[in-house]
């Protein structure tokens, strides 16, 4: 049910964009108004989200440790496993972001006959994820050819290597296939793997279904339901130079593709897709692993609230504690002194 709803939303979006854009005069709404609106929400949304996160204090030093912390000289320090300096944190972060190291070290626990529990390395998620993300990056960069005029040379190089196989005309891109495949695998993982399926929510399925639909509509537009690319590029260049124009006829498939992307942009800041920015703001990854050398001060701490030790606490409540039979470290003052205490009280008055 959770995933079928995602398909329903995508089909509804496709119908709205496909039919709506073909009504005379509505091309401007689907080709200009919606993308601008979506981009504004996207840009404002990510800024809002990052600032919101940056306002949250980090009360504890909670880095995840993947190796030996810096210690005595003869103990080997794992520099990217437990970074001690800012440079090492940058190195660790680069490994996490560029190579998806946590997914690479993923282990799967299984109960075997015996009963015996086993832990084995499971790299599938890492493989699907890295194929997906890098394909997506290449596709994103390739799309710049439709926004920039003249097209910088390096975009041509990316296209050359991506279309290296020279299959068909227009040539198939390698990343088109790998992206679609990776999305299908990431999605089926959520259906097939019982544990992950139990955890999966609508907002896990929806982005995958949406990304699949974006890729599929793009592939359909390039290889099957072609529309004049010059008209499309004139509209897209117009969008980024803030003078949008729609010349000639642009097929419905383009508006469907564009509306899907707009939906993705709108979802982005408010969904789990925001992990793109969130990874940099994760205290588990961006903190130094130096808790033995430097004391982490909770920024929440009110300087007016002084430390209150157990001894002080016992002083406050000693009598009640004894009355209720709670063991105390220091007994009540001896009974023969009340006269003196009374005298002190009088002196204070």
């Amino acid at each position: 049910m959770k995933y079928s709803f995602s398909f329903l939303v995508v089909i509804a979006l496709a119908l709205i964009a496909g039919v709506g854009s073909q009504i005379p005069g509505m091309g401007y709404f689907f080709g200009v108004v919606i993308p601008y609106l979506a981009f504004a929400i996207f840009l404002g949304g990510i800024i809002w989200r990052i600032v919101y996160w940056a306002k949250s204090p980090v009360p504890f030093s909670i880095q995840t440790t993947r190796g030996q912390m810096k210690s005595l000289d003869f103990i080997k320090h794992s520099r990217t496993g437990a970074p001690d300096t800012n440079a090492e944190v940058v190195g660790r972060m680069a490994l996490e972001v560029l190579t998806f190291r946590p997914l690479f070290y993923n282990t799967k626990s299984e109960l075997r006959e015996g009963p015996k529990i086993t832990y084995e390395s499971s790299k599938w998620l890492w493989l699907f994820a890295i194929v997906f993300h890098y394909s997506f990056l290449v596709i994103l960069l390739r799309h710049l050819r439709l926004f920039l005029d003249p097209v910088p040379v390096w975009i041509g190089w990316i296209e050359f290597w991506d279309g290296l196989l020279q299959i068909g005309a227009p040539t198939w891109y390698i990343t088109d296939v790998t992206l679609l495949l990776a999305v299908v695998l990431l999605f089926s993982r959520r259906l097939v793997n019982r544990h992950v399926r139990y955890l999966s929510l609508m907002n896990d399925y929806f982005p995958l279904v949406l990304l699949f639909s974006i890729a599929l509509s793009g592939i359909l537009m390039r290889y099957m339901l072609r529309s004049d690319i010059v008209n499309i590029k004139e509209l897209l260049v117009g969008l980024v130079t803030l003078h949008p124009v729609i010349n000639g006829h642009i097929g419905a498939i383009f508006y469907i593709h564009l509306t899907f992307i707009s939906a993705l942009l709108v979802c982005f800041p408010f969904s789990k897709l925001m992990h793109a920015g969130g990874v940099f703001l994760s205290p588990t990854l961006n903190m130094r692993n130096n808790t033995r050398a430097v004391r982490h001060i909770n920024p929440w701490n009110d300087p007016n609230i002084k430390p209150h030790s157990y001894a002080d606490y016992e002083d406050d409540f000693r009598e009640s504690m004894i009355d209720n039979g709670i063991p105390v470290e220091k007994g009540l003052p001896p009974k023969d002194e009340p006269a003196e205490a009374g005298a002190e009280k009088k002196a204070e008055e």
Binding site: L43, V51, V240, T241
Partner: peptide, 15 residues
């Protein structure tokens, strides 16, 4: 944030 915004708006200012 500035780097993020510049990256995301790349096509807008590149031309």
């Amino acid at each position: 944030l500035i780097i993020t915004v510049l990256l995301v708006t790349f096509p807008f200012w590149f031309d």
